[in-house]
Simulated scan of single mutants.
Amino acid sequence: MKIGIDKINFFIPHLYVDMNKLALARNVEPAKFTIGIGQEKMAVAPITQDTVTLAANAAVEILTDEDKEKIDTVIFATESGIDHSKAAAIYVHRLLGLKHHARAFEIKEACYGATAAIQLAKGHIALHPDSKVLVLGSDISRYGLHSSGEVTQGAGAVAILISANPKIMTIEEPSVFHTEDIMDFWRPIYSDVAYVDGKFSNEKYISFFQTVWGQFKAETDMTLADFEAICFHMPYTKMGLKALKSVLDEGYNSDQERLLANYDVSKQYSKVVGNIYTGSLYLSLLSLLELNTDLDAGDRIGLYSYGSGAVGEFFSGIIQPGYRDFLQAEKHEKLLKERKELSIEEYEKIFQETLPTDGSALTLSIDEDPADICLAGIDRHMRQYINKNL
């Protein structure tokens, strides 16, 4: 049975910061951000958008009534959740109008979470081939104003519908993975910003890739020649490139040129969005699928997922016939082009806006937020969500 990605979509807030201007405001040479890190713009979430609304907005555009009837599981992957108890998936379940006889839960392992969710979904579909699973990867990346990680922030969500006989990509066996208990990146429950050992994390990201790639080759006898492209989790766009270059000498010149060219295509969305944590790998996959018009049915795509702390996984997928008909390339182009640029002062003000934590009520104005689904306020510690179309 073929199982994989039937539909996929991403959503980002309508606000962004230009990285050249942020660099100047931080007394940094702009090329350090735009070339050294590889980022041009950074998505910024207003207070009316959180991980729940980002995920719901990503999913609402692609689900039909038939999909909603067949979805019996919703898995929400995030490392910037809003509640230590209640799963964000339950809010999204209501906002999308899904049927009640469905599971909904949240999982966590840094940026790896959405990959874990996809593999769980794949196993579920194998047992229940008539059902569908909605996987959501949604995050707001925060390191703090003036911090070393500020340049690698971002906000956004990816919604992925997993099913039998998928329209876009089948997910192959085997998948190989590697886990180590390390402290390269973490966010204690009392902190609203993350902590990172950048140099150590970069080293582990690359070493984990080399490990799972080696395992994958040993189990499959595949080489770089078997892949049209390899997509990477992108905390920033230069990171995946470093990992790819670490194994390129295994291939012929033609392999190297093809993989580097397709890596460049896969980073286009990420470099103008930033790091969206759990959705990052799948944002790079979408960039590749929508912007490379030379891909064909039957092409194999490698996918490297990494979540600090740490878990790494490598697996592959096969592009399906007619896959372009089920992508959202024009909508994504419009979404990116119609964003509003923030001044550094506006960005810093938005970054510091917070919801009350004492149980008091706050009503938010959602008129300036063009998204269909917004956070409209908070009352007695309960967030108030609105779907403008319901």
Rank of each mutant, 00 (worst) to 15 (best):
P356L: 09
H124S: 09
M1P: 07
A114R: 00
I90C: 15
L98K: 00
L98V: 05
A58V: 11
I35Y: 08
D192Y: 07
C374A: 15
E172R: 06
D255G: 13
G144P: 01
I160A: 01
I301P: 03
G251M: 09
D296V: 11
I171P: 05
A55S: 11
I90A: 14
V158T: 13
T179G: 01
V52S: 06
E341N: 07
I318H: 05
G298K: 05
G123V: 00
N253E: 13
T152R: 01
L286T: 04
N275G: 08
E79S: 15
I71W: 04
L134M: 08
Q215A: 10
A43C: 14
I378A: 09
G198N: 07
A56E: 02
R339G: 09
D249W: 01
H332Y: 02
L364N: 09
S80F: 09
A297F: 06
F227R: 06
T220E: 02
N275T: 13
R258V: 12
E29C: 11
V44N: 05
A126S: 09
A310S: 13
V28S: 09
S207W: 06
I378Y: 02
E61P: 06
E345S: 15
Y112R: 07
Q352V: 06
D184M: 07
K204L: 11
K108N: 14
L335V: 08
G149N: 08
I5S: 03
V158E: 07
S131K: 14
A58I: 12
F227V: 07
M222A: 12
E368S: 11
G156A: 08
K340M: 04
A117E: 03
F200R: 10
G312A: 14
F10P: 03
K217V: 02
D294L: 12
L24R: 15
D181N: 10
G214N: 08
M183W: 10
V52D: 07
F227D: 11
L120I: 14
A121Y: 01
V17H: 00
N57M: 11
D181P: 00
A164K: 13
A55N: 04
T223R: 03
Y306D: 02
L289K: 12
G240R: 00
E66F: 04
E29V: 15
W186G: 04
F76I: 02
Y269D: 09
A310F: 07
I140F: 03
P370I: 13
I12F: 02
M234H: 12
G279D: 11
S191T: 08
V193A: 09
F209V: 13
S80H: 10
S270E: 01
L24F: 00
K242Q: 14
L291E: 14
K41A: 12
L24D: 10
R300Q: 08
